[in-house]
Simulated assay, not measured.
Amino acid sequence: MQPFRALTATACPLPQANVDTDQLIPARFMSRPRSAGYGEFLLHDLRFGADGAPRPGFPLNDPARAGSAILVARRNFGSGSSREAAAYALLDHGIRCVLAPSFGDIFSSNAVNNGLLPARLEEEAIEALLAWLEAGGREVTVDLESRLVTAGDARWEFTIDPVWRTKLLNGWTDLDLTLSHAPRIEAFIAEDRHRRPWAWLDRAAGQQDAPAGPGR
């Protein structure tokens, strides 16, 4: 997974609350393989009309926001079902960070596990940032190391779970995070073997005493 440390990019305002995972990617598009990419379906039913034509007033359809890697939304972003494809759709569209006052818990976990930063800003900061973007502001910097968002002359501190921050900074999965503690785990095992030898079966004996499988 690609590490996330700092990102300076075009930001797109999405001044809506309660954007749920079914809006992020409608279920009818989830039958295609992950390798085919989900980016074209991001917010499909909000971006396009029934005839498939782009809705002219929708922010992601604005040519000035083409290539946006940062999305700024209101509270409860990513609520709803647990579909991991919501994170896929954002990433495949080019979004690396979503700024909002709050997120759906499962969405946040899925986002982090795929290298997408869900950064929580206070509502006042989000409203100020949305106003700045809608007035013509474009480029925003999100620094995960300092936990700061910079837009023009304004700066705001954001929050994120410290374990998630560690995973994103290093590009780690949950397995990588566990392996980072390998020396401590090995030390615990060695100490516990010494302290409680009766709790540790000899591997060879354990294999010998295992019941025979079917047909034996």
Rank of each mutant, 00 (worst) to 15 (best):
L130T: 01
W132Y: 13
V142P: 08
A131F: 02
R203Y: 03
E145P: 05
E134D: 09
A210Y: 15
D161N: 12
A187H: 03
I160L: 11
A205H: 11
E139M: 06
L133H: 03
L130G: 01
R138V: 09
I160E: 08
E145D: 12
D143P: 05
P183S: 09
W132E: 03
H181T: 05
R155P: 05
G206E: 14
R165I: 04
I185K: 11
R155E: 10
F188L: 10
W172L: 03
P211M: 07
D209V: 07
S146D: 11
T159H: 01
H194A: 15
W132N: 02
E157C: 13
V149S: 01
D174C: 09
T173Q: 03
R155Q: 15
L133V: 05
E134L: 01
L129Y: 07
L175D: 00
L133R: 00
I189V: 12
L175S: 00
W132G: 03
A182M: 01
A187L: 01
E145W: 11
W156E: 08
E157D: 08
F158V: 02
A190I: 01
G137W: 01
V163R: 04
D176Y: 09
D153I: 08
A199L: 14
V140Y: 04
I160C: 06
F188S: 11
R193M: 00
V163N: 00
T173W: 06
E157T: 13
L129K: 08
F158R: 02
L130Q: 06
L148N: 09
R196L: 10
P197R: 12
E191F: 04
D209T: 08
V142M: 08
A151N: 14
T141Q: 05
L148P: 03
T141R: 09
